[in-house]
Amino acid sequence: MHRFLRLSILLISLFAASSFAADATQAVKMTEDSLGPLVEQPIEFPHFRHAGDVNKEHPEKGGMQIDCMYCHTFARRSAVAGIPPLQKCIGCHQSIESVRETPRIKKLFEYWEGSKDGKIAAKSPIPWKKVHDLPDFVRFNHERHIKRFVFQQNRPVQEACGYCHGDVKTMTVARRSKTLSMGFCVDCHKKDHLVSAEGGTAIGNQAYWYGFKKPVVNASAPLTAKGPNDCWQCHK
């Protein structure tokens, strides 16, 4: 009989293994590769100095807690976050004398005023390299995500942006922190997210489609809905 025992154990474990494999598809593996290469930027922008937390002991090491959207103004108004115009950098740095002579800031001003060797014309845009690059057929909408999570649900900006961009306030951005693969996006869209009416979204029965199940409005549990699940949301 032990042969049958062996056999049934084998079959059961085969079934379990295949079910598990099928079930675990969404767990997106993150490898070194999926984060893209390290990128050398024309100016190594110290995000931690601008957005980082204040360090009371070593103020020179800490940041200034500048809101992401102070510079990345387009993110809340457009699908594309864009890069802040050079004007924005200069606007502040014109009056910050203390770091005026540091190499990075000197470089910055070369783009504004033109370099002495004439290689950079005055007012030329800084050729930043793309780090968070999605394929051309993917259209991620920054505006909607920020409206939804920052403005309607009052999540901290750092958290909302950081979900995809990582803990920017501690770094200069040289590579991605998340894979940004489709599975990464879909994973999140499959989750139930809080839907709050206070933020101003009259969701109506939209939630039915996005959450595929009609929400019970008056139940004590908070109202949730899934993210949009139709392909045309991101691919057009």
Partner: peptide, 15 residues
């Protein structure tokens, strides 16, 4: 090609 919640017949080129 799928049906979207708003009643369109979607076509996803990259798929």
């Amino acid at each position: 090609t799928n049906h979207t919640p708003d009643g369109l017949n979607s076509q996803i080129y990259n798929r």
